[in-house]
Design a protein around this nucleic acid. Structure first.
Lengths: 269, 269
DNA sequence: TCTTGACCCTCCCGCAGGGGGAGCCCGCAG
DNA sequence: CTGCGGGCTCCCCCTGCGGGAGGGTCAAGA
């Protein structure tokens, strides 16, 4: 007969709190070796210690309980390794975002007093080859690179640098409509997700964000500030134009991103 | 008269959702420039855009709203910088913990089959110079180094390597009693927080954890497993003895930490 | 002037993972 | 037999955010 541990004893050897163990039971992550039908008392076996520790570690990595369950339930070691590797990748991404936020914060706290050069520009309707979709802000980067690859394949000779149209909801609500495009002189045949599209004419408040996109929100804010102070109001999705981007130079410091915010004049008074 | 923005417009220029802006108002972080007394409509001024962005960045760094409030309310730039620096430090620490968890997880998923050498040892009561306190598991490291510095100052010639006594609640509930000590041959005078203390005699299940403390929980689990299978039960706080530690060598790979878990025999059957 | 639709308001519920605590049962030891 | 240290369940609270209901406001167009 194997030695069984009360929940309190198991808590001591695993360094998990009693409450947490109960929750893990409830969530189906760590079924006690025995549950007394009369009293409901939980008993754990020593062979469950490693499982408890794996859960502990995964939780330290902020893996959601549901995902932990999936990892524990996966039959093969490779599956487990793949799921865990996926999470480590997500941690990497998060670290990158943290770095960006730190960089952005630094700029905000040590603001450059140089005024932002903004130009009010009336742009005509433009023919483009575009890929359109509804995305979550987490997936934008993946979605963007996939779309851009399709565009590059479909458009041999673009008439200008690539650009994107981003719904405001994408930033504020975390998901929304996005369009990436390449200007063309003639409508291309529809291939894959690539479609011909005409960007409407608009009046844009335009500025250029230099460098990588870490701190682009600062530039957005300064542009927004300019727009408001100029008695204008924003209307419609933002247009970004990648004047110099990763396809042109691997050095992020040399990137140049044009931000164009559609505006209209607010009646004075 | 300065141009004022509706909450929706402000949401668009700051990339914060309307709901979030309302929450920040409620939390006192970002008071609208005007609130219509009749309709309750919020209006924001363009000068609030940078503030909104600072909040946005801080939230991306998982700074709690209360702390954001403190940062925004702090009068001097130095205070602000200090608070932010503190948070960046916390991010660093968290990163370190993440690294530890990853390392630990790797060991758990690729377990070493070598059996853990465990010794059952009866230790006599020991006279020590000790610093005692109730700490949260987050502060243990800071608390430990401060206490050890005091001990080193008070005890010129210790009779053995330093050690610690850690309440189980410290691991499971996140806070509990902790003691660090240096063995002495004669009771030292009480200086600062340093007191003479006698560790009670005990029967300990003892093993040694090699290397840094990243994966010490794995060793804890294996030791716990051994204890249970040997028909023993844990009793009282864990004793760690730092046979070889940071004070001996800067190379963590050569550290050796002895873990002693007080046990008692469980009546068979 | 009325209607319509976009916008705004408040309030409640949900999510994740826990913590705190009430109120009760259970078993053991003095 | 009584106390006490566990164990049990159930409920509410916390954080920061989203979804949605139900209702008020405001401006443009008919």
């Amino acid at each position: 007969m194997p030695p069984l541990l009360s929940i309190g004893e198991f808590s001591q050897v695993t360094h998990l709190s009693v409450r947490t163990l109960r929750r893990y039971h409830e969530a189906g992550l760590l079924e006690p070796a025995r549950v007394d039908p009369a009293s409901g008392y939980r008993s754990y076996g020593p062979e469950q210690i490693p499982t408890a520790q794996v859960i502990h570690r995964l939780r330290e990595l902020d893996v959601p309980l549901a995902e932990v369950g999936r990892i524990l339930a996966s039959p093969s070691t490779e599956d487990r390794a793949r799921l865990v590797a996926g999470h480590l990748q997500r941690l990497e991404d998060q670290l990158q975002r943290t770095r960006s936020a730190v960089a952005s914060l630094r700029r905000l706290l040590h603001p450059e007093p140089a005024p932002l050069p903004v130009e009010l520009r009336r742009v005509p309707a433009t023919l483009v080859a575009a890929v359109e979709g509804t995305v979550g802000s987490d997936d934008v980067l993946d979605w963007y690179s996939a779309a851009m690859a399709q565009l590059d394949a479909a458009v041999p000779a673009p008439a200008g640098p690539p650009g994107g149209l981003y719904d405001n909801a994408l930033f504020t609500d975390g998901h929304g409509q996005a369009v990436v495009y390449l200007p063309v002189s003639h409508a291309p045949p529809a291939t894959g997700r690539v479609r011909a599209r005409t960007l409407p004419a608009a009046e844009l408040a335009v500025t250029v964000h230099p460098g990588e996109h870490d701190t682009i929100d600062v530039t957005y804010g300064r542009l927004g500030s300019w727009v408001v102070r100029s008695a204008l109001a924003v209307a419609g999705p933002v247009r970004e134009t990648y004047l110099v981007g990763p396809r042109d130079t691997p050095d992020p410091a040399r990137w140049r991103t044009e931000i164009g915010w559609p505006v209209f004049r607010v009646a004075p008074g």
